[in-house]
């Protein structure tokens, strides 16, 4: 940093410090806008409504959930990235918005510096599941079958560059099997075709109810821990696939320049909410495991995911312009 810049930064932080106490004392003094870059009914939307309701009850201010879907979450994220950084505009994020989409889409904001994370509201459990007609009772046998039949099996996903696509390509990279990617518009259609056998494989959180009912056969949980919903199902590590480092989580973020006091307040408040047994129960019903991390801890998680997704997307040559 040059001396002038350092001086400028010092003056700026002094000014911020002067104005800050007032902001922290009174925040929030007006309604908070909570942007969800997905349509109503999506998991992101459900998580947001649970958190928004509690945030509103605690702060006494209305928290308005605003769905702003489009361009693979880029529209909603851009809206928040360019919003006034005063703590009155929040963004519901997934790690895909923060760490995967920047590798896939040209964005009008800098994904690495635009946001400050406030909460990690839940790790999501995803599953690899196959149509029941597909041979192989566990992941190992399935992989052996796939190796003997290269290019015969299809995996259906929610679209190009979706998490299911990234999971599928990662599986191909780690095991050397050859699966054909069949993109759909949204995971519902892909799951439907997996049940009918049009495609054989899906890698998706929403495979759970179908697996429980025997319409699909779950082969592994794509997480580091076993899923409480299917405790007998091995994790992908236990099933013998090495170095599985992709994951999905949900969180909350704000524009990067939001005053530190407000960030600290929101981080503490969200972590308080995420500790409430009733909220935890609601989130678990959505297949999520809430975590309570500091802002710096979440930043570290984002950095790790950013590198991981970058590596997979580059290695598998995933494109979604």
């Amino acid at each position: 940093m040059t001396p002038t810049k350092a001086l400028g930064a010092a003056v700026l932080s002094a000014l911020l410090a002067l104005s800050a106490p007032a902001a922290a004392d009174t925040y929030p003094s007006k309604p908070i806008r909570y942007v969800v870059p997905f349509p109503p009914g999506a998991t992101s939307d459900n998580v947001s409504r649970i958190l928004a309701q509690r945030l509103s009850e605690i702060t006494g201010q209305p928290v308005v959930v605003e769905n702003k879907p489009g361009a693979g979450t880029a529209l909603g994220a851009e809206l928040v990235a360019k919003a006034e950084p005063d703590g009155y505009t929040l963004l519901n994020v997934t790690n895909a918005t923060l760490a995967a989409i920047p590798h896939l889409v040209k964005l009008s904001y800098d994904p690495e510096t635009a946001f400050v994370p406030l909460a990690l509201s839940g790790d999501s459990y995803s599953y690899i599941a196959v149509n029941p007609e597909v041979p192989g009772k566990d992941l190992k046998e399935f992989i052996a079958y796939a190796q003997k039949n290269p290019g015969k099996l299809n995996f259906g996903t929610a679209g190009n560059g979706s998490l299911g696509h990234i999971y599928g390509e990662l599986l191909k990279l780690r095991t050397g099997i050859d699966l054909v990617h069949v993109p759909y518009k949204g995971s519902a259609a892909a799951l439907n075709d997996a049940v009918t056998g049009q495609v054989q494989v899906v890698l998706d959180p929403a495979a759970l109810p179908l697996a429980k009912a025997g319409k699909l056969r779950a082969l592994a949980t794509l997480n580091a821990q076993r899923s409480p919903a299917l405790p007998d199902l091995p994790t992908i590590h236990e099933a013998g696939v090495p170095n599985w480092n992709a994951r999905l989580w949900f969180g909350v973020a704000a524009p990067a320049k939001t005053p530190p006091e407000v960030v600290a307040f929101l981080n503490a408040t969200f972590n308080k909410i995420l500790a409430e047994p009733e909220t935890v129960e609601k989130l678990r019903a959505l297949n999520l495991e809430p975590r309570r991390l500091s802002v710096d801890e979440i930043r570290a998680v984002v950095r790790e995911d950013f590198a991981t997704f970058g590596e997979i997307i580059k290695a598998a040559n995933i494109k979604s312009e």
Partner: peptide, 23 residues
Amino acid sequence: IPENPVMALMVGAMMIHGIQPGP
């Protein structure tokens, strides 16, 4: 499996109530 946006919302409503929609 929801086949249109309204059905997707119904799924969301079920999940918020802790009902896992499915067979």
